[in-house]
Amino acid sequence: MKKTVLEICMILFASCLLTLGYYGIVGEPNREIVCVSEDLEPHHVCMQTVIGDWGGEVQWVDARTRKEWEKNGIEGSVLLTDDAKENFNDLLNASMEAIFMASQQQQKVVIYCNGVACGSSKAVHAKLIEQGIYEEIYILHGGWKALSQELAKETSVLNQ
C-alpha cells in the first residue's frame, strides 16, 4: 500500500516537472481566439477580416457595459448594449446617426461584446438590422477578447 502511494506521488512529481519543462521551452499555451470565416454563423466576422479585408476602417459598436466602454472602448465606438442598467431606446437614439453615416461612407459596422458567448452582440445586431437603416452590420467573433489580442499585437509591434 505504502509502495503504491509512493509510486503515485513520484508519477505526479514527474508530470509536474515535465509540464514546467514544456512551459519553459514552448511558453504559455496559445489562448488566442480561433476564427475560421467559413465556420462562422451568418453575420459573424473574424478579426482578420476586419483588419485585413476591411482595413480596420469600420464603425465599432460596443455592446459591453458602460463601465467597460468608458474604460477601454475602441476610439470612435458607440455604446449600444442590452445591459439592464441602461435605457436601450436612449442608447439606440444616440448611436443610430453614426450607423447611418457609416452607411453613407460604405463603411461596415462591427459589434463586439465580451467574448464568444456574451450574447449582447447578437441581441444588438438583431435590433440594428430591425431598424432597416443599414444591412452591412456584423458581429465580431470572440468580441473584446479578439479585439484586445489585436491591440496587444499592435502595441508589441510599436514597442519594438
Binding site: D83, A84, N87, F88, N89, A123, A126
Partner: peptide, 11 residues
C-alpha cells in the same frame, strides 16, 4: 429585463 425588447439570450 431592463428596457430592451426583442429576443435576448444570456448565460
Amino acid at each position: 429585463l431592463g428596457t430592451f425588447t426583442g429576443k435576448v439570450e444570456k448565460t
